[in-house]
């Protein structure tokens, strides 16, 4: 297993953000972490990165614990999210050079140019971040995420600020890079059609707990409690959004 999460719990005072969550992610798969706002997706990813400490439970990545092997683990993975940003006065190239240095990328100039072209933003490399659109910043974040050829990629809503055309392009690049390098991806999105297209397996979260796991079609049939020939995660999403975890699990 590349990722083993066991009984992970995070509370803030009386509020429980994540409750007793366990899952695994196998090498080479694209696993989707989906659920309504506040379901705990981003908190789980932040705990996997060591940015938030859990109240209980453990995260093992590449068979190692962040508590003891943080540096080796984080060298082998990468992450992007629309909620993170870059220093705005620095140019795209300067920002990526800083991160290339942190990840000790060999031949950083060539690597950065290659990624900028792949994500269609080669023309922007000398522009300061302050002059980029949200979609362009998202793509710079994706370039940063691929700088170290990660074995594991945590993508938190990677197409959130992209227009449909750019989103299609980015998904194609992601799938292409995943196939050519065998990268394992943990993917969160609110776009259920995107999740159906991208993910081999999904983990459906509601109010901090996992309520269903399986392929998109398995989750669809399980939650809707009927046979379907095609996944319908949007329908599942709408049905789940209004329920409590107990109701969903008992169903």
């Amino acid at each position: 297993m590349l990722v083993t999460v066991e009984r992970l719990t995070k509370t803030y005072g009386k509020f429980t953000a994540v409750q007793d969550v366990s899952f695994v992610v196998h090498a080479g798969e694209i696993a989707g972490l989906v659920g309504p706002n506040g379901a705990g997706k981003t908190t789980i990813i932040h705990m996997m990165l060591g940015l938030i400490s859990p109240n209980a439970g453990s995260v093992r990545l590449f068979g190692k614990s962040l508590e003891t092997d943080r540096e080796q683990i984080l060298q082998r993975l990468n992450f992007t999210s629309p909620y993170m940003a870059f220093p705005v006065r620095l140019t795209v190239l300067e920002n990526l050079r800083v991160f290339a240095g942190i990840y000790n990328v060999r031949d950083p100039a060539a690597k950065i140019n290659e990624l900028l072209e792949q994500f269609g933003i080669g023309r922007l490399k000398k522009k300061p971040m302050s002059r980029l659109s949200s979609g362009e910043i998202t793509r710079v974040g994706l370039c940063k995420a691929f700088l170290n050829d990660p074995e594991l990629l945590l993508l938190d809503e990677p197409t959130a600020y992209l227009d449909p055309q750019a989103a299609v392009q980015v998904r194609a690049v992601l799938l292409d890079l995943q196939k050519s390098r065998g990268t394992t991806i943990l993917y969160t999105s609110h776009n259920m059609h995107e999740v159906e297209r991208m993910c081999d397996r999904i983990l459906f979260l509601s109010k901090g707990s996992i309520i269903a796991t399986g392929t998109p079609i398995e989750v669809t049939c399980s939650i809707l409690n009927e046979d379907r020939s095609a996944p319908a995660l949007e329908e599942v999403f709408i049905r789940i959004a209004g329920r409590t975890p107990d109701e969903a699990v008992s169903n």
Binding site: Q72, L74, Q75, S81, P87
Partner: peptide
Amino acid sequence: ELWSRNLVSLFASPLS
């Protein structure tokens, strides 16, 4: 780093 919301990227990297 804080104003530019760069902390997450920095501390999600191997940088200690």
